[in-house]
Design a protein around this nucleic acid. Structure first.
Length: 424
DNA sequence: TCTGGGGTCCTAGGACCC
DNA sequence: TCTGGGGTCCTAGGACCC
């Protein structure tokens, strides 16, 4: 038995925890550049505000209904997430943190208990410890637990907890679920399925396996088996190391100057290096990309990207930054109006494996640059203590390309300064 | 005027090996 | 006109997730 615990309207709920005046008031949270709506409270959903809608397109609606609008505050959401996960970890023998606002719990050993009651206990406890409302779905497979969770969210009579245990309960749940609402079935596959008269989860469960395998491949076949009640997705207790790490941003305004692009790319490259070190990993490939706006019809479109291998796997900020700067020269075109840039590191290996992947030619690797390593350690330690950006490489520059974040709330749980500011 | 960011897995096809 | 069998590795593209 699996439980899926999913926070309700997570980002909007985080804003509410520290701002009681928002109770019952519609709340939305915007994407990184204050561009799109990425989270909505129930009241905001009821107003017809769509997920992913550009903010400027629904500005009149937001104003008319006095919607509380926030820039996304990842310091706050990340910290609130770990509080929720810590609470959940105390309520089940095993937990898989699936995303910032969801976790699977292993309920196998609870089989003899009243699962609905236990689900209510989970809800109450998370609410009491963190202030975040959650819904709980339980079923014999992860895919069915997702469906159970969705039913718990949509139908108030479940009071936030839906358990699918008997064949009968599962059957009716599948009949009430449309294919596009199944975990793992996206837009393209929904279209294909509907065109073939497979409209509900029950239809998909009953479809010929060979047809599913042919059109939806292995992934689809797995979903079908899970819908039929046979578990083939297991609990993943330890998060595997990342295979790629990307840092990219849309700019707060158009960037035309080479120098500003350099600053942005340097900043993203250094961020990637920090993330790599946090993962205890080294990267062997580096990709840099710069892009114009895909929406602006009046400007010439351009998407420049380049990938190169690093001389040897590294997580050194200075090495990665220098390489990224060189690659930028190769893709920069003067006279373009850039709207976005990014740096991606891949070909990732664990730090311990480095000795086995020495390059044949780089002599200096035989005497690793201990000084640079120390510098990175000290920088990470200072930034850990005094906040990101306390010390940085000179080329990293928070220039005028910085994304807009005009409606940022306080980092209530991670920064003393922010709380004092609130008090004042 | 204003449109997010960060990931994964799978498949097919090409280049290459013996 | 005919031209094997069995592999690996890499990349691009397409699908999906939150």
């Amino acid at each position: 038995m699996f439980a899926l615990v999913d926070c309700n309207n997570f980002y909007a709920s985080c804003e509410r925890v520290f701002n009681p005046a928002l109770h019952l008031r519609p709340v939305v949270v915007l994407s990184n550049n204050d561009g799109c709506i990425i989270a909505r409270s129930e009241e905001a959903k009821a107003l017809g505000i769509q997920m992913g809608m550009p903010e400027f397109k629904c500005r009149p609606l937001l104003k008319q209904h006095d919607v509380a609008v926030f820039s996304s505050n990842y310091a706050l959401y990340g910290d609130m997430s770990s509080r929720v996960m810590m609470t959940l970890a105390s309520l089940a023998p095993e937990i898989e943190v699936y995303s910032i606002d969801e976790a699977f719990l292993d309920m196998t050993s609870f089989a003899r208990f009243d699962l609905t009651k236990y689900g209510r206990l989970i809800r109450r406890t998370v609410r009491q410890h963190t202030g975040i409302p959650v819904c709980v779905g339980m079923a014999p497979t992860k895919t069915l637990a997702k469906i159970a969770n969705r039913l718990a969210k949509k139908n108030p009579h479940y009071q936030g907890v839906c358990v699918l245990a008997t064949a009968e309960e599962i059957r009716t749940a599948l009949e009430r679920t449309k294919v596009e609402d199944i975990w793992g079935i996206g837009r393209q596959w929904s279209k294909l399925l509907q065109a073939n008269r497979i409209e509900s989860a029950a239809d998909l469960a009953a479809a010929p396996a060979a047809w599913v395998k042919k059109h939806l491949h292995l992934v689809g076949a797995r979903i079908q088996v899970e819908l039929q009640g046979t578990s083939c997705l297991t609990m993943e207790l330890v998060r595997p190391a990342k295979q790629s790490i990307c840092t990219s941003r849309s700019f707060g305004r158009s960037v035309t100057l080479h120098e500003e692009l350099q600053q942005a790319v340097a900043t993203f490259a250094a961020r990637c290096a920090v993330k790599l070190r946090k993962e205890n990993s080294l990267a062997s490939l580096l990709t840099v990309f710069i892009a114009t706006s895909p929406f602006d019809e009046s400007c010439k479109r351009y998407w420049g990207t380049r990938t190169a291998s690093l001389p040897s796997p590294t997580s050194d900020s200075m090495t990665i930054l220098r390489a990224a700067q060189t690659m930028l020269e190769g893709i920069f075109r003067a006279g373009m109006s850039y709207k976005k840039a990014g740096v991606l590191v891949s070909g990732i290996v664990p730090k311990e494996a480095r000795s086995t992947t020495l390059s044949l030619f780089a002599e200096e690797e035989l005497l690793p640059n201990e000084r640079d390593k120390k510098i990175m350690q000290v920088m990470d330690a200072i930034n850990q203590r005094y906040g990101r950006g306390a010390v940085r490489l000179a080329a990293e520059n928070p220039g005028s390309w910085k994304p807009q974040q005009e409606r940022l709330s306080a980092r209530y749980t991670t920064r003393w300064d922010d709380i004092i500011e609130v008090k004042g």
